[in-house]
Design a protein around this nucleic acid. Sequence first.
DNA 1: CTTGGCATTCTTGTATACAAAAACATTGAC
DNA 2: GTCAATGTTTTTGTATACAAGAATGCCAAG
Lengths: 233, 233
Amino acid sequence: MPRLNFTRAMSKPETMEQRRADNIAEQLEELIFNGTFSDGDRLDEVRLAEQFGVSRTPLREAFQRLALSGLVELIPRRGAFVRQPGPVELMEMFEVMAELEAVCGRLAALRITDQALEELRDANSNCQAAVDARDSDAYYAENERFHRIIYQQSGNGFLAQEATKLHKRLKPFRRQQLRFRGRMAQSMAEHEHIVRALEMGTSDLAANTLREHVAVQGEKFHQLMATLKNAAE
Amino acid sequence: MPRLNFTRAMSKPETMEQRRADNIAEQLEELIFNGTFSDGDRLDEVRLAEQFGVSRTPLREAFQRLALSGLVELIPRRGAFVRQPGPVELMEMFEVMAELEAVCGRLAALRITDQALEELRDANSNCQAAVDARDSDAYYAENERFHRIIYQQSGNGFLAQEATKLHKRLKPFRRQQLRFRGRMAQSMAEHEHIVRALEMGTSDLAANTLREHVAVQGEKFHQLMATLKNAAE
DNA sequence: CTTGGCATTCTTGTATACAAAAACATTGAC
DNA sequence: GTCAATGTTTTTGTATACAAGAATGCCAAG
């Protein structure tokens, strides 16, 4: 006889208390992103367990989560292997990212609030300040804020969530890109165009501008490939 | 001193041998989809463990996977709760699905092979046969094949994967839809238009036709809401 | 009748134990 | 020297054990 009579989940308690396993998943993610582990590396359960000061159980739970997000491949009876996207998959992911952003932009052009527009302008001026100060960290932070606002203003929570997920996944690669000369300034200029399109409420223009902004083509393609080779060394 | 000197994963062995935990995740997914568990239900670890004849450990690993795919919400120290999308989230998901299909169509119009076109026509004639026989199961199977081909012909593996994932997630809701009068026939007709657009290689037409085909609007909206109410009773 | 606090029982989260499978190393044949 | 077979050791997958946190029930006070 089941005890818990509250078989229904009450309204989201929005508990931000994390279990240990969740933290471990995040930390592992970070270790993969920052290059401590690279493609093909095997994640040793016992060593990582020691390192994190926990037993294998929560680690294995973390592996499950990472596996579904694609960062790790779980090969039965063999272990967990880091799985970074190769050039082809990376291009594919950027292509999807560009399309997702375009959709967000198209919807946001119709639904964005005045307040959000103001925040976009604010993020943009912070970006400009970062460009002037050649502070790529600050630039990146504000750039992320800029895009996140657009995701949210699409008015489609699910879409915003998916876009955020992919954005996060591509973060390390995008970040490399910013180190190229003139990249920050160009990106800034594109942001201005995007804001203008959103202000005007022209869906198609907003969509196309965002797609172009995110798409990897022309010189950006070569830059991306260059960073990949560096990462592989 | 690490033992495994093969620290790199060899080329994908494409091992289809599943671990127990993977199977459990799939079975649970099925149980959620077919309505054995409905929104808000708590998944009892010990009971399910008995039911599946395993211990709690593999079950908990399965929970982790289901949590990331959104079917289950893991509340710390409280348990795993089934989380079915409500009307709003469902509409959002269909909107994203429509956009993903549109992108697939746009790319596929440029890249589709003659052989794939032939397969689309084949799937379509099977669909027609199913409509004539009023066999909604067969219709659904061929419909799925139809869409899957388009995903794959986008030439973007990552996109195809994401589209497939969402398609699967929406499966139970789409399936309900087919029971409405005339829905299968209308859907069939739209498929014809889609194939024609792909044949002609007109990207925009293919994209728009697919978007309209998948989008939930007008009468379809009411039908979807009706199925939701039925499911809640 | 409702409300609040305490004890009890159940449930989760984590650690540990153990069996099965995989990788490694050694030996021997060619 | 290369390669195959076999025994050893590591490593994974699962079961079990145990500690800490929730939920329930009970009792008393208002």
